[in-house]
Design a protein around this nucleic acid. Structure first.
Lengths: 346, 346
DNA sequence: GTGAAAGCGCTAACAG
DNA sequence: CTGTTAGCGCTTTCAC
């Protein structure tokens, strides 16, 4: 491990001078040629500052605490983590990850994170929902990913569920479907209501009257399968918008049983939560991927900007469905995000 | 942030004494009643040591670098991370996660991790394979998860693929199946070969002669579907062992097309990589879950023990299919793991 | 412009 | 047994 001291000795200046130079704060304070010598030596011995020592003085660490509640049981978390991780790396930050399924241990974990001097928290939810950020976390900058903070005071990013529903349905309409079914979730979670609204709007905008016989909100297993079958019998659909891959599965099964083929006899657009369809049968165009990676990426960017600009102004509450600004995530993806940002009142 | 200094002042002793006491190294060095006073004060003001300051002296941080290559594109990583995270938390460690899909940035990321003073690396692969640990990482304790390090000098944990194949097939035999098909992967990855071996052994042990007409190693999409159909026509199976959920999917489709029901007309045991079957149609007993969480958990435990016991003895190479020792992972799961451990030669 | 000195919170060597 | 001293690597006054 190379230190400033070594540079100082090699160049015959003091540690303080080295500090100024390597931190780029030598303008008009250190003679240019000395600065040059120092920089040269630093490069030569491959000097890298020790972030721990630095943070002991400055009490900021360039470490972000990635807190995910309820996430262990889902395969989605990975994408959010990866997005956050990529953004953080680009901005010179590190991620410390902590999950808190065990209710009781939360406080302990958060305390530990604080002791490690994290500069802020990225609070990720397992599925899009109204989120209550634990008060302990609020003491530092926080951003919510895959959820919307209840009070509107914390920047959040979540999938644009309405947009997903609208867009999916639109695609089915454009594909020539006349009787488009909605296969949703029986639980009244955010995504369910909003995607359904999007579905309805798209139908309305196309001058199609929604038929309640074409809607099946189901759970799991045989019961769900039966409900889908019943809906198909009653509604005779030719296109399907499916809430997630479990629901798509029921339609594929129903099709197979009738000797029909998805993509020829029936059209289907589904959200591919588990990525299983992407690698199996469904042609790419019929799946919508939730923007987990992108949410992680944006959340980390936003968090860093808050940390560095001390951007904590009291705030308005705005929503936008525009493409993510300055995101530039490296993965091409169908991005449907909804940003809840605090706007400073200027 | 509470400090030792505060405790020292409040109790009228020196910081060094406080240090000894709060670190539990006061046996026969500090008078019991002083120690008691110090401890009381520490508890009263809720003292928690500052790990950063500590590591500045000791140069170990109780931070583990979680490095996952090629992991961003799969939903599996989450489980490994969560397992590692849980184990680490229990042992008083933190996880810093880093993914390195971008080939070029690896070195930079690893260097950053080192600068943050990680005590060791957890190197996670995206699917079970022979792993080459980047040399930079080898300078610190390393454990490989979801892969087997090529030289056998690095402790590794991977799914017991053979056991998975054997067990799955055994279950089908016990369920009364006579003609058991194997639907595998056309790519010659580790899991493919080993699960197939397990399948063959189970058949052999039951006195069933393997029929090549019952084997289909396939890729994706319609081609795969067709191959599975052809195999079914040719082999007339009544039971299926499927390599993963994509492959199970083809069988479910084939069944539906024939008006058959899995679990009644056909038996199926499949590996449920994406967890989609677990929540959809398949009864629990027919799916095998890869032990991602458990691998992460074990790997972290092992790594910490190496870090703390400086367990770096040159080593034998042993394999075991026994249940994980001292694992006690909180999740109930069908655990099939293969441990590659270095054994000290004593 | 530059360096000496102090200090972040903690541990470790050594006196007493 | 306990306190003093020194120092981990860095930043930050504050004299010179």
């Amino acid at each position: 491990m190379t230190t400033m001291k070594e540079i100082a000795q090699a160049t015959g200046v003091s540690v303080s001078t080295v500090s100024l130079v390597v931190n780029g704060r030598d303008q008009g304070r250190v003679k240019p040629d000395i600065a040059k010598r120092v920089r040269a030596e630093a490069k030569k011995i491959g000097y890298r500052p020790n972030p721990l020592a630095r943070s002991l003085r400055t009490s900021h660490t360039r470490i972000i605490g990635f807190v995910s509640e309820e996430v262990a049981t889902t395969p989605y978390a990975g994408g959010i983590i990866m997005g956050a991780q990529d953004a953080a790396a680009r901005l010179g930050y590190m991620l410390i990850t902590v999950s808190t399924d065990g209710v009781a241990e939360e406080e302990r974990e958060f305390a530990a994170l604080k002791r490690y001097g994290v500069d802020g928290f990225l609070y990720a939810k397992m599925y899009n929902q109204l989120a209550d950020v634990p008060p302990v976390l609020r003491q530092l900058p926080v951003v919510v990913a895959n959820g919307i903070e209840r009070t509107g005071m914390v920047p959040s990013i979540a999938p644009d569920e309405y947009g997903i529903g609208y867009n999916a349905t639109k695609r089915l309409i454009n594909a020539g479907c006349q009787r488009i079914a909605y296969i949703g979730d029986q639980d009244p979670i955010l995504a369910q209501g909003l995607r359904f609204k999007g579905y309805q709007s798209a139908l309305g905008d196309a001058g199609i009257t929604a038929d309640p016989k074409l809607v099946a909100n189901v759970g799991f297993n045989q019961e769900a399968m039966d409900a889908v079958e019943a809906m198909i019998e009653a509604g005779n659909p030719d296109g399907f918008f499916c809430f997630n891959d479990s629901r798509s599965w029921y339609v594929y099964q129903a099709a197979a049983r009738r000797g029909l083929t998805i993509g020829r006899d029936w059209s289907l657009v589904g959200v591919d939560n588990h990525r299983v369809f992407a690698e199996t049968l469904a042609p790419r165009l019929t799946t919508i991927e939730l923007p987990h990676y992108e949410m992680g990426y944006w959340a980390a960017c936003k968090l860093v900007s808050m940390i560095e600009h001390k951007d904590e102004s009291p705030a308005l509450h705005t929503q936008t469905r525009a493409p993510l600004p300055s995101l530039q995530a490296p993965r091409p993806a169908l991005i449907h995000c909804q940003l809840i940002e605090k706007d400073s009142v200027r």
